[in-house]
């Protein structure tokens, strides 16, 4: 490799310390992103997708969760070793974030202009009030808020769900970040509004070349928005690769089962393929592969050893003993 990737997450481990025991919420996650990449981070609730993002930005709930190991290399620095002061310069400016519920991200008692202008003011990026106003209008236009001039003095409650989420995106973009982390940004939106928002993300990416990490449980959203995908299960990435490869010929039995469990529109099947059981209790995970109890390809060996993530011949990575090294089904 000639150049270091934009973001490189190495063996990231974040544990939650609860009264009932230690939960390995993120357990050895590893991936790398290039400029312009968009990575879909998929998995079921509790698989560790959000914890991975929060670990990168060091926004973990304290003191319950702690990153106990690994490195997050960004722009030549390990984010995990920065001081809180240095970290605050990274958040928002170098790495932006959008959360699931825009109402929680927006302050109900401040105007839109005030909130969208905040990142500019904090950085001292605006010369005077009229310049600030221009900058705010500019980002609001970028996210397609209709008649932004009239919207400046409004409050979040006057905005619809889709407009609120676009406002949050405007705030995240105000710092022109090199990476945007969006954690289930469209879960609270209707399909047509979701479609508009995902288009906006793609458009912004094309324009600015920023990288994107999109957390979602919807493989359809990944197919439409991302070029890479990481499938998480029980705190680990079980498959990582190019979206087309992974979605058209999944290597890991979990990815395969997830895709098969989706209802196919227009074809009324009698029964859906069903993954039996439920995700493991992370307080007491299985000794071997975490997916083994639900896996249709499980072998005796799967009960004993955790499968390491291996690079297959087509470049993607998967963690499954049923796959011989280098073999792609």
């Amino acid at each position: 490799m000639t150049q270091a990737p934009l973001l490189s997450v190495e063996d990231l481990r974040t544990y939650c310390y609860t009264r009932a025991g230690v939960v390995k919420a993120v357990d050895g996650v590893r991936f790398a992103l290039e400029r312009g990449d968009s990575l879909g981070l998929v998995g079921e609730s509790g698989s560790g997708k959000s914890m991975t993002c929060n670990s990168i930005l060091r926004l973990l709930p304290k003191p319950a969760a702690r990153t106990v190991g690994g490195r997050v290399l960004w722009d030549g620095r390990d984010l995990l070793t920065l001081s809180e002061r240095e970290m605050r310069r990274v958040r928002g400016r170098e790495i932006g974030m959008i959360l699931q519920d825009p109402l929680i991200s927006l302050n109900p008692v401040f105007t839109i202009a005030n909130q969208v202008g905040e990142p500019f003011r904090l950085r001292g990026a605006a010369k005077g009030r009229s310049d600030l106003r221009e900058k705010v209008l500019d980002v609001l236009r970028q996210v397609h808020i209709p008649s932004p001039e009239a919207r400046l003095s409004q409050y979040p409650f006057e905005f619809s769900g889709g407009m609120r989420q676009r406002t949050v995106a405007a705030i995240a973009l105000a710092g022109s970040p090199g990476l945007l982390i969006a954690d289930e940004p469209t879960t609270s939106l209707d399909v047509t509004i979701q479609d508009q928002f995902l288009r906006l993300l793609r458009e912004l990416q094309e324009k600015t070349g920023m990288a994107l990490i999109l957390v979602t449980h919807d493989l359809g959203i990944v197919a439409e928005t991302c070029n890479k995908v990481a499938v998480m299960y029980a705190g680990k990435i079980v498959e990582f690769g190019d979206v087309r490869q992974v979605l058209t010929s999944p290597a890991h039995p979990y990815t395969e089962a997830l895709l098969k469990a989706l209802p196919v529109p227009g074809t009324r099947q009698k029964r859906l393929y069903q993954i039996s059981g439920e995700p493991p209790n992370l307080l007491d995970p299985p000794a071997g592969c975490a997916f083994e109890p639900r896996c249709h390809r499980a072998m005796q060996a799967c009960k004993k050893a955790r499968p390491p993530i291996k690079r297959l011949s087509d470049g993607r990575q998967a963690a499954c003993l049923a796959l011989e090294a280098g073999e792609v089904r």
Binding site: T192, Q194, L198, L219, A223, V243
Partner: peptide, 12 residues
Amino acid sequence: LFRAMPLPDPDR
């Protein structure tokens, strides 16, 4: 609505 529906088909 159908156009907006995300499908897990990267070739769509």
